[in-house]
C-alpha cells in the first residue's frame, strides 16, 4: 500500500509544513527534539486537525481539507505506539491487547489477543499488569495491541529508545523482520542511526517543522544537506 501526506498545521509555537510519502518499506523520521516529529504522528492519527493538506492511505482519504474529509481517530485504523508505549495501567496485558476491536464479543476479542501475544512470544505475560513489565516486554505488548485493529499503517514514536542495549538489539531485529514479512507500512521516529540502517528505511529529516532532507541512508550520508543530518549519520557505515 502506498501512503502520502501533505500537512500544514500551526500548533502553539510550532509550525508544521511537511510532505511525506511511502510504501511498504519503513520510513524513519529523524530530527532534533522539538522539531515536530511527535506532533506529526499525533496529527496523522487524528489528534490535531491540520489547517490544510491531506492524508492518503492507499485509496482511502483519512483527511482532506479541500473536500472536508476528516475521519475521527477510531475510523482511521492507524496503529499508534506513543513514547513510553501508552499501555493502560489499569488493565492486564491480555485486556490491553484485547482493548481494540470493541466490535467483537469479549471472548472472541480475548482469544484474538492471546494469539497476537503468542505471535510476539509474550503469551506468558497475559495476566500481568503493565507496570510490572520490562521495557522490551511493554514494547511488544504495545505492538501486539496496535496490530489488533489490522492497521493500515504503524506509527511508532521512539520504539527502541528506552531499552537497554541487549533488548534494543533484539527488538530492533524483531521489528525489522516483522515489518518486512507483513509488508506493513510504518513510520518510525528514532534518534539512532543504527535503527535506520537495520530497518533499511527511507529517511525524512524534520527540522523546525519542515522536511530539511529526505532519501536513502546512502544519499543522506554522502551529501548531508544540514549540519544535523551530517551529525546524525556521522560514522554510519551504510
Amino acid at each position: 500500500m502506498n501512503w502520502a501526506l501533505s500537512l500544514r498545521l500551526r500548533l502553539g509555537a510550532l509550525e508544521l509544513d511537511v510532505d511525506l510519502e511511502g510504501d511498504a518499506r519503513p520510513v524513519a523520521l529523524v530530527g532534533p527534539n522539538g522539531a515536530g516529529k511527535t506532533t506529526l504522528l499525533r496529527t496523522i492519527v487524528g489528534a490535531h486537525r491540520p489547517d490544510s493538506g491531506r492524508i492518503q492511505m492507499g485509496d482511502l482519504s483519512v483527511f482532506d481539507a479541500r473536500s472536508g474529509i476528516d475521519l475521527p481517530p477510531e475510523q482511521r485504523r492507524i496503529g499508534y505506539v506513543p513514547q513510553g508505549y501508552g499501555l493502560f495501567p489499569h488493565l492486564r496485558v491480555l485486556d490491553n491487547v484485547a482493548f481494540g476491536r470493541p466490535d467483537l464479543p469479549r471472548a472472541e476479542r480475548r482469544e484474538m489477543a492471546r494469539e497476537m501475544l503468542k505471535d510476539m512470544g509474550c503469551e506468558h505475560l497475559t495476566a500481568r499488569r503493565p507496570t510490572t513489565l520490562s521495557g522490551g516486554e511493554m514494547q511488544r505488548v504495545a505492538l501486539a495491541r496496535a496490530l489488533m485493529v489490522g492497521p493500515r499503517m504503524l506509527l511508532l514514536d521512539e520504539p527502541l529508545s528506552a531499552l537497554d542495549a541487549v533488548a534494543r538489539r533484539a527488538l530492533r531485529a524483531y521489528l525489522t523482520d516483522y515489518l518486512r514479512s507483513r509488508k506493513l507500512p510504518a513510520l518510525v521516529v528514532t534518534h539512532d542511526a543504527r535503527d535506520v540502517v537495520a530497518l533499511d528505511a527511507r529517511v525524512y529529516v524534520v527540522e523546525d517543522g519542515r522536511i530539511s532532507q529526505s532519501g536513502t541512508i546512502e544519499a543522506l550520508t554522502e551529501a548531508p544537506a544540514t549540519p544535523f543530518v551530517a551529525a546524525f549519520f556521522h560514522g554510519t557505515v551504510a
Binding site: 489528534a47 475521527p72 481517530p73 477510531e74 499508534y80 506513543p82 501508552g86 470493541p102 495491541r145
Partner: peptide
C-alpha cells in the same frame, strides 16, 4: 491522565466518550 492514553484508546476503535 496521560493524553497519549486517551489518543491510543481512540486509535483502537473507541469514540471520544468510549
Amino acid at each position: 491522565v496521560n493524553p497519549d492514553l486517551l489518543l491510543v484508546a481512540r486509535t483502537l476503535g473507541q469514540s471520544r466518550l468510549g
